[in-house]
Design a binder for these strands. Sequence first.
DNA 1: ACCTGAACACCGTTCAAGT
DNA 2: ACCTGAACACCGTTCAAGT
Lengths: 252, 252
Amino acid sequence: VTRKRTDAGTAAAIDTATAADGAKERLSRETIVDSALALVDAEGLDAVTIRRLAHDQGVTPMALYWHFRDKERLLDGIAERLLSNVVLPAEGAAADDVPTSWDVRFHQFLLAIIAALREHPAAADLVRTRIMLSTAGLDITESALELLAEAGFDEEQSAQLAGQALGSIVLLVTTEPGLEVGPDAELKEQARRTKRAALQSLPPERYPRVMASVEAFLACGDSQEYFDLGLELFIAGARAVAPARRGSPAVS
Amino acid sequence: VTRKRTDAGTAAAIDTATAADGAKERLSRETIVDSALALVDAEGLDAVTIRRLAHDQGVTPMALYWHFRDKERLLDGIAERLLSNVVLPAEGAAADDVPTSWDVRFHQFLLAIIAALREHPAAADLVRTRIMLSTAGLDITESALELLAEAGFDEEQSAQLAGQALGSIVLLVTTEPGLEVGPDAELKEQARRTKRAALQSLPPERYPRVMASVEAFLACGDSQEYFDLGLELFIAGARAVAPARRGSPAVS
DNA sequence: ACCTGAACACCGTTCAAGT
DNA sequence: ACCTGAACACCGTTCAAGT
């Protein structure tokens, strides 16, 4: 793990997109988050550094401190951006006279969040602890709680389940099998080969299922099945755990 | 967020437990992990630093590099310790002629892992990505896959569900409501008050459920209910998603 | 309002050397 | 085998100052 930045390849690529591109635009919270997100996508969350960001922007590290109180706030800003990219499904498909049940709506709801997180998988984990810090996140949370209340859960249970739902989809997005994010695919690919080799050298009589399952998991069908199973696990669990509702929603 | 270490209070407390305690014992992987774990418990994962650890041990930072190739390996070591603290439920309650079904055994299985993780909640997140790196973790994984195969899942699904199960219980442990871990309870308590104040200043007509649910969640009944609901959510979900088994296990 | 310069207190890690 | 010393390339952040 060398940390010397001798290779300026990827850094330059990002440079040209912003500062070195001639039109030296003003710094702002938005542009900073933009370039942070580009950096996350290209080199992972650990690469996001005040100094690195400033350098890419052609600016002094301290310049960023005018726009964000500290690094934590910058990360909050990234999370907020991800959450504001979520487009929630329209509330009422009111044309039908038969209302869609809460579980299929919850499914669509979670799918919408997943779609936004998948755009920047390496940053997805940030939102887990930062949902309540932006209005976008609060809107999402409020919707989730409404759906869970509709399912019959009380306030405390709804809060817990909403948290678990978020955790589950973040986990799904961050550990999607085909996903490679790091500095370059080459290095990660090698790491994966090493890991696989280590697994295959295990005593097969002791870990038969581990060896078979991991291989099957990495081979991985399409991501469609992956997310479907992950989501259905949660939804079906919620359905099973939900207490009986007091009367189905009145059909007007 | 000042990083100056003017206050030597907690540091001294850890010091006395190890280096400053007279009997200057030899360094080893075990003792290093011991003190790392003590540090995690006292001040959180971010406080775990090669230099800090070395200082607490009364030794040069480089000394640790003889025992661990780099910091990542040290974290692997912490995760391995947590996993080796798990005592899996006994395989056969063979005395009964009616075998326990997979779902209640899976429940007990997850409870056993939770018990170990709860001992060091601030370190729990480490195991999520490190299960396959130790024999303790591999044993656990193998057991999980056996149970899931018994439920009728194929190899790929089993791998995915095992990963989600681990993610779920780690999430449960790390975000248990009553939990305070940081440098001192005082500072965290203040942070929580600030957060709660921010929530209560929200427009109540826009976020009624958020305001009610969060309050209910933080008030929090006992942790028994919390873990029960979280576990049942997963188990019931798995039960619902599980394909039909080819004949129930033969009663001998 | 927006950014720079210099400085401080930390990091992880390498490499050569001690015992 | 086990540890030290000195050095390198990084961090986040404060504080005073520039325009």
